[in-house]
Amino acid sequence: MDVTMVRRAQQVADQALAWLGQMRTNFALPRDVQHWELTGDALKGLAEVTLAAAIVRREAVAGPRSAQTAEELIDFAWREFDAGELLYTLLRHTPPATHPVEIYSHFTLAGLRHPPLERLAAHQAGLRAAAVTEHVPNRRLAVLAARRRLGLPDPPDVPGLIAQTWLGGTPEPWMLDTFNAYGVTHTVFHLTDWGGKPEALEPRLQDYLHRWLPVWVEVFAETRSWDLLGELLIVDVCLSEPEWYPQAWERLAAAQREDGMVPNGVTRPPDDPGQAFHNHNHPTIVAAVAGTLTVSRALAVAS
């Protein structure tokens, strides 16, 4: 680990967070639709920026300005969700849906709670239906992570859930594609609670990632897939012994625009930040998380 890399990660996170703070009204939920008509897309951005801000708060390594921005984003998102009431309403309206609890669990990272929602979630977690939702395998781990944040018991066969994911199968490394790469990153995020518990990722999978993550970082840096590269850098600092990837950090930092936005590397961002927001808010959120977790792990290792 070198100091320049840590500074670069800090700089990327600070600038990304500043952009997210400036753009926060773009994350607002639509005002002209009923709650049951809220689409996944409308909820996704707000849920993700909440998670990023909650991680900034949890790690407590940001400077005063970034810490203040994170607080403001959490407050903003909590107000948008009507202090959890909207998520509770969504869960009551569609009990089999898992996204209200998944989104709510992000707020619990920041210490915000809605007791009635938690009681309903606890009831539902005990139903047979909770074990058989038709999700892709890594999404089942998102639900598992949310249950853990709420203090609910694990489902009976967690190793079985992990084994069904792409990463759990430890496949031939050259068979990774973009879709499965996002599956790998999210499997790691959920099992380690975004780097909070690196040891929660079993040694077999840590070893697999130590072997092949360098290849994937190299390939997705070369293809300028900044969103996925950022997620892979998060994966690195979710492991017990990160590699840090200073060259990849240099490239990510060079790709970041002056205003802090990180382009997705796939579509050309318009100059107007408002127009760029739709396609490029996700890589910017990823960059904020990646930088924050990298600085935090670096400080932990150094201390």
Binding site: E172, W174, R211, V215, W216, V219, E222
Partner: peptide, 14 residues
Amino acid sequence: RLDLMRGVSRALLR
């Protein structure tokens, strides 16, 4: 050996 296999994997992915 691992570095060789990483090179193979990178080449296949490309």
